[in-house]
Write a protein that binds this DNA or RNA. Structure first.
Length: 311
DNA sequence: CGTTTTTGACCCGCGC
DNA sequence: GCGCGGGTCAAAAACG
């Protein structure tokens, strides 16, 4: 998908355009002293253009502020929704009976950092593992029972297993789910109630990283891949060159690539912090998936650009 | 030549 | 105890 990029706009949401890069925004022209009238005219022109630039800067500044507010609102909504979802999940979880069954030996090092729930949110179009078909539920339940003893019904820690649904070309037989991490396949099995095989992956950082994942095409909807993650990465995610639904810790760059009608817009925001960071990433990727939002944003920005080009 | 994938064998828990 | 099924191992093959 090599879209040519006609436009590349970086929107700095940490709005303060006056403190950096500012001098470069003004055209620094070498002014040769000539006649005083000439000089006066040049000064006037310069002042005019400076005023124009200042106006534009103010416009961009207020636009940045608006976008920031918008982002904050979206964040709030997202957070509320996320919170609600967690509540619902924790309310449902006691129904999943907690048998102390353990099929196989446990992972030697049991990292209980809690898997970012939202891994699902970024990658999928319908990512709610709750409202799922019966068949799946049974299947997953069986799978999810194996690694966790599930001592209490809390929703945030010890949630080692998460499921991700990824839309995939039904002709594509490679059971790969791009999530930014690197995996090594260690097995493949044909399972009973699903015509397509299940692939088993370990994080390439194994054995130091205990994370495993299983990928299998959904039995009901062959256009969906079901990825089941077990455990938590104990290392930084790789720079997510092939996916952006990772849970990276620390400084990160969230890149929203909005491809719309040949216009490619990049929105970058640097942020520090872990939970915030993850949330921002999740939000970014969900927004990216939202065609309405991307279309609206692209239209708004390109409209603004056209308007500015005209003036 | 080192790394990854493939694939049949093996292991283990579970139900009968 | 036995068979079934899911998960893992590991030798061989494939790959870069």
């Amino acid at each position: 998908m090599a879209y040519s990029s006609f436009l590349d706009i970086s929107l700095d949401l940490n709005t303060n355009p006056f403190d950096r890069n500012f001098p470069e925004n003004f055209p620094k022209k070498e002014v040769n002293v000539s006649t005083s009238a000439d000089l006066e005219r040049k000064c006037l022109v310069k002042e005019e253009s400076a005023n124009e630039l200042r106006e534009e800067l103010n416009r961009v500044n207020s636009e940045n502020k608006k976008l920031t507010e918008m982002l904050a609102t979206v964040w709030e909504n997202y957070y509320a929704l996320h919170h609600h979802l967690e509540k619902l999940q924790s309310r449902n979880s006691p129904e999943i009976d907690e048998q102390p069954t353990k099929k196989r030996k446990q992972d030697p090092d049991d990292f209980l950092l809690g898997f970012p729930v939202g891994l699902s949110s970024g990658k999928t179009d319908n990512s709610s593992s709750n409202e799922d078909h019966h068949h799946h539920h049974q299947h997953e339940q069986k799978n999810q029972l194996l690694p966790c003893k599930r001592p209490v019904t809390d929703s945030f820690n010890k949630a080692k297993v998460s499921t991700v649904y990824v839309p995939a070309d039904s002709t594509d037989t490679s059971l790969t789910v791009k999530d930014g991490y690197q995996w090594r396949k260690y097995g493949q099995k044909v399972t009973r109630d699903n015509p397509s095989p299940r692939a088993y992956f370990r994080c390439s950082f194994a054995p130091s990283c205990p994370v495993k994942k299983k990928v299998q095409r959904s039995a009901e909807d062959p256009s969906l891949l079901v990825a089941t993650y077990e455990g938590t990465h104990n290392h930084l995610g790789p720079n997510a060159s092939e996916g952006d639904a990772t849970s990276q810790v620390g400084t990160s760059t969230v890149t929203l690539d909005l491809v719309h009608g040949g216009h490619r817009l990049a929105l970058e925001k640097n942020e520090r912090g872990t939970m915030q960071d993850v949330l921002v990433q999740q939000m970014a990727s969900s927004l990216t998936k939202d065609s309405k939002f991307t279309a609206a944003l692209a239209a708004a920005i390109s409209g603004r650009l056209m308007e500015q080009a005209r003036t």
